[in-house]
Design a protein around this nucleic acid. Structure first.
Lengths: 339, 339
DNA sequence: CTGAAAGCGCTAACAA
DNA sequence: TTGTTAGCGCTTTCAG
């Protein structure tokens, strides 16, 4: 194994030379093309092995015009929900022969614009994007040159494919479950100052609809507002409501993180869960399964989300050029120990 | 905006034609080359804008031989620790002008081999890889053609760069902290059947060293074994120890997930944390911060891990060809409410 | 069944 | 300061 030549620099032509055949023939065996005589195949394979030849994927991409890769642009990969979506989408893509390039926008407006504009040009065949800072109108204006599908709510109908759950309906389902459990004073934790996404509003709407439908008046005191997205922000929001004497026997949370915050605030205040207060999270991430008590949570069907997003994207990548489609995937409520 | 031409298919040559200049000139303005007359620059920029030209990154890569991308190969992106490492490495890489391609091996031997062999050939300039199923000897044998650095322990010195924390020392530190807190019967949760990685053994070693150094005899009953890596496996391991009458006043866990399992098993058994039993997790992932009570955890310096791994890799990508280097990064113990 | 040669779109000498 | 042109390594007609 006297490897004098530097690894990775062996080209198709080198193999062809050594085997005494043309590039086309080598290419044929590399691709397992069937009409190649056994002897030819062996000879070429021997040359490939001897040289340790590995096709240069970049060159292949340029020649074929296909990258076999899709970008997944999300705010932060280390947030449970996004990490789980990344896994699901990665697996779904893998099943269809694609790989994913994870692009973190880190909640930066410019990073999000770049995703739409040109960041991935020629690098990927399509992009799946969950925006957090730019709205659908701007996305439409930027008109990416690459097939695109959006994850998450769309503030208004736009001419871009997107897939989401029915946030309003899911919130209503959650509140109804709480009501069935005998709860009457249900708090919503929380709207976040500076959150421009539509989901919270849709969830808040569902929360209100369910209450009204049950003949329970709305109490503005029960809609908590937080100063940020962090655990401490959530703890603070709920703790100060408690300190202010706001009465409640359940908390519907905007995400599992805030549900963890609720659990903490409740523990600090000496309230028992679920005896005194029920807690319902949102997203059904791993933390809901791992916490004690196990956290009940509104569960978007993440696999359906991934599969649908990929399917829409694949249509586009194969040339579909119709108007933007709008898909709703199922959700459910996973009951554990906090309700 | 009558876009007759299909988006994304505008080439450098098209811009050159429209502007009435050569490709080189267009290239110059695209790259902000300084010696370009203002008028020329304006003319070209106008053509670029009119056509909506965006460089094809794949072609650029082929021409330059640089991809500006590194692969991060990890078992599962939705495990807290890996998600956090992905974020850190992504940010570190970003600061140096690189992007990362996350490759999930999903604990599959073949997937891991592929990473080393040819999966990324020509796609990335380097690879950062945390193996879970193949050992360093095999990695050495496969001799990747792309610069590589390993994350995590190395069973024996091999000729590949790698970076890790001192697992034995960290375990010792953890146990010593528990001892200082007055604990004497410290359980280790847990070794996992079928786990081939070295870390658990190193940690177990540190655990034993600390006990011995404190003049406390080892009790084999306190070293628990689990049937798998999941939460339930951990709960079961600890619960059956409790059921078997094993006495302990602290639990050192192999990771935060098992610490969450410990919290659950302890709650089921009616043991209070930390009054009756202290729990110390490992990895200091987000779940440690979010759980109630807040989980104390052994904290590898993930940023240092990311920065060091990247630095080693960058050396290699720039041609360094010396023997494998072995870097140890700091760890600490974050005390929260469970100790 | 195998070979020759023209690209894929961009970069970077080298010229002018 | 700007233009010409030969690659980068692979795919893919089109011949033979």
């Amino acid at each position: 194994m006297a490897s004098g030549r530097s690894a990775g620099r062996v080209r198709l032509q080198d193999v062809a030379d050594l085997a005494g055949v043309s590039m086309k023939t080598v290419s044929n065996v590399v691709h397992d093309y069937e009409h190649v005589s056994a002897s030819m195949r062996d000879k070429v394979q021997a040359a490939i092995d001897e040289l340790g030849y590995r096709p240069n994927l970049t060159a292949r991409r340029l020649a074929t015009g296909k990258t076999g890769m899709i970008a997944l642009a999300i705010p932060e990969i280390d947030q449970f929900y996004f990490a789980e979506m990344a896994r699901n989408i990665g697996e779904e893509a893998g099943r269809h022969g694609y790989r994913i390039l994870v692009e973190q926008t880190l909640n930066d407006v410019e990073a999000e614009r770049a995703v739409i504009r040109d960041r991935e040009e020629g690098l990927v065949d399509g992009v799946i994007f969950q925006p957090a800072r730019i709205d659908t109108l701007e996305i439409a204006r930027l008109r990416p040159g690459t097939p695109l599908v959006l994850l998450g709510e769309a503030a208004r109908p736009v001419n871009t494919d997107h897939v989401m759950i029915d946030n309003t309906r899911a919130a209503r389902d959650g509140v109804e479950m709480l009501l069935r459990g005998g709860r009457r004073r249900i708090a919503f934790l929380a709207t976040v100052r500076g959150d421009i996404t539509e989901s919270t509003h849709l969830r808040l709407l569902g929360y209100q609809e369910a209450l009204l439908a049950a003949g329970i008046g709305l109490d503005a005191q029960l809609v908590l507002q937080s100063d940020g997205f962090g655990l401490d922000d959530g703890v603070r929001a709920l703790s100060s409501a408690i300190a202010a004497g706001v009465e409640f026997d359940a908390v519907l949370c905007r995400d599992d993180l805030f549900a963890m915050a609720a659990l903490r605030a409740l523990a600090l205040a000496g309230r028992r869960v679920p005896a005194d207060v029920s807690v319902l999270g949102w997203d059904d991430t791993a933390v809901a399964r791992y916490s004690t008590p196990g956290l009940s949570s509104v569960a978007p069907d993440k696999r359906a989300l991934a599969a649908t997003a990929f399917a829409l994207l694949e249509d586009r990548m194969q040339g579909f050029d119709g108007p933007g489609r709008h898909e709703i995937v199922p959700h459910s409520i996973v009951e554990r120990a906090t309700t």
